[in-house]
Amino acid sequence: MSTEPQQPKTPQPKPSLTERRKAATQLDIARAAAELFAEHGPDGTTAEAIATRAGVALRTFYRYFRSKQDAVAPLLSGGGDQWLALLASAEPGSGVLSNLERAVTEVLSTPDPRAAEQLDWTRGLLRAADRDPALRAVWYRVNQEGEEKLLPVLTALAGPGADPLEVRLAGAAATAAIRTALEEWARTDAPAQGPGSPAELAARCLKELTRGMSLS
């Protein structure tokens, strides 16, 4: 049986120098905000203090973020961006669930310093979010935005003929699995690797939420 050849992927344009500088500044501000939240809590932290800690003017802070809680969004979305990039690099039509499980495990269990730091920030911020509705709203918004970015990637992985509703459900399930796993892990002192880790919990949640789906 003949098959049509796969079309080569269109290379994604690299961010410009201006975009990279903007992202770096946003991350500096996000880290400063997270440090101050850990030291003084969100209620004891001001936008002025965050700007000072990050070494930027207050007007620069408000150019990028609407509020002090909003400033930590780049840290909360960092792992999701890595996960999305890994999924986007998979071969179109190669399947949804298998790629989701592989990406979840790889991103959350990579024992490099950057990944470990990302998880440490996330744990601290999620603990603070339990006591701060505005910070919790940022976390939910980050997850919603991540789910919206995920849908076209999963559609490509599913290939032609896949049920759009099931693809959308898979995206919602994957987002919920990671969110739930990170929230549960943050409430404990479990390590970042091994039993009770985000990778183990997320894989378990994903299997439970996608049970019965016909997607491969």
Rank of each mutant, 00 (worst) to 15 (best):
P164Q: 08
A156Q: 15
P160F: 01
L135M: 10
A137Q: 12
T122F: 13
A170N: 00
L126M: 14
A115W: 13
N143H: 12
E147L: 03
A134L: 12
A170Q: 03
V107A: 05
E166C: 00
V138C: 15
K149Y: 06
A137H: 05
T110F: 15
G159D: 13
L108Q: 06
L119P: 02
R136F: 06
G159L: 08
L125N: 00
W121D: 04
Q118H: 09
L135D: 03
G161V: 07
R127D: 08
L119E: 01
D163F: 00
L125V: 06
W139H: 06
A116P: 07
L126W: 05
R123F: 01
A128M: 11
L157V: 15
E117S: 11
D130S: 12
L126C: 07
A116Y: 04
A116W: 02
L135I: 15
W121P: 00
G161K: 08
T155A: 08
D112S: 14
E145F: 13
P164K: 07
R136P: 04
P111M: 11
A162L: 05
A156K: 13
L151M: 10
R141F: 00
L125G: 01
E147T: 02
P111Y: 10
V142T: 08
P113V: 06
L157E: 09
Q144E: 13
D120H: 08
P113E: 12
L119D: 05
R127I: 08
L108I: 14
R141G: 09
P133D: 14
T110M: 14
L169P: 03
E148C: 10
L169M: 11
L169I: 06
V167T: 04
L108V: 10
L157G: 10
A156P: 03
R136A: 10
D132F: 11
R127E: 13
R127A: 05
N143I: 14
D163Q: 02
W139P: 02
N143A: 11
R168L: 00
T122I: 12
L154S: 01
